[in-house]
Write a protein that binds this DNA or RNA. Sequence first.
DNA 1: ACCGTACTACGAGGTTCATCGAAATACGAT
DNA 2: ATCGTATTTCGATGAACCTCGTAGTACGGT
Lengths: 103, 103
Amino acid sequence: MTAVLPHPERDEIRIEAVLHALADPVRLRIVRELAQSVEGMSCGVQLDLGISASTLTHHVRTLREAGVVRVQPRGTSRISSLRREDLDTLYPGLLNGILAAPR
Amino acid sequence: MTAVLPHPERDEIRIEAVLHALADPVRLRIVRELAQSVEGMSCGVQLDLGISASTLTHHVRTLREAGVVRVQPRGTSRISSLRREDLDTLYPGLLNGILAAPR
DNA sequence: ACCGTACTACGAGGTTCATCGAAATACGAT
DNA sequence: ATCGTATTTCGATGAACCTCGTAGTACGGT
């Protein structure tokens, strides 16, 4: 795989990128699942999203580059977790508002 | 112009459509301006967005169809206003979180 | 060393989207 | 009625995006 996964710093996160990342059904689903997981998870292993592996990579990268998710290598897997503190600091209420929405 | 402008009812508003509508820089700018206006405004007359009239129509329609904005005819203009109550009820905190973000 | 699993990189195909200009429509004012 | 302003509709264009399959890389286990 590649060397290190680049993440935007908190002050580099842009609201347009965050909203765009959350606007996709698949990515929103990922975020909802991640929101219920304290430790994060391997989306590829623990989630059945009905998409190909390469498409999943694309979505997780979009979330990561937008600053919504943090991704850490563990073995052959990547553990994704919500950047809840960063997002709540930057956009207080945004995440809760979205997660409160009926499916 | 056209007969009546269709708006989604509150329970027809979908989170993906709202997020997609807000994810565009021009539309986000419109929403920010609208958020500071109690009575709403004619985006075409009172806003200088650096886009053509037809593009503005496209953006306002996107916001309206997503349920973010309510549009009422007044004379030859259209007055747009934020659907704050609907959005706050459906997604409490979302709007405030977005508007709190530094430009 | 080898195999299997997890993931990524690289096109490619098809769809959606933002943008515009030109033409058309609606409405107020003269 | 006519004119000017505000807006919409239409069609076109180019960019961005979601999706996939294939091929490749990384890592753990046997």
